[in-house]
């Protein structure tokens, strides 16, 4: 599983970071860093999927590898 970020949309609001901080990290320039690959842990992946659907500007897209 990999997360694609639409950089034209992502504004660093940090919603994803609040849900899965192990994977999403917004720096102080508001740039979102995403862990790659995403650790193979079912609980964490559920939260990552929740973070994807919770993005208020729909900037995240999961890609199953």
């Amino acid at each position: 599983m990999k997360i694609m970020v639409d950089r034209t949309k992502c504004d660093g609001n940090g919603v994803c970071m609040g849900i899965a901080p192990e994977v999403f990290d917004v720096d102080d320039e508001l740039y979102l860093h995403v862990a790659d690959p995403i650790p193979d842990d079912p609980e964490l992946r559920a939260r990552v999927r929740q973070a994807v659907t919770s993005c208020p500007i729909l900037a995240l897209k999961p890609v199953e590898k």
């Binding site: 940090g14 970071m17 609040g18 990290d25 917004v26 720096d27 102080d28 508001l30």
Partner: peptide
């Protein structure tokens, strides 16, 4: 303000 890491 612009401090996501600190806030989180």
């Amino acid at each position: 303000v612009n401090a996501s890491r600190a806030v989180m």
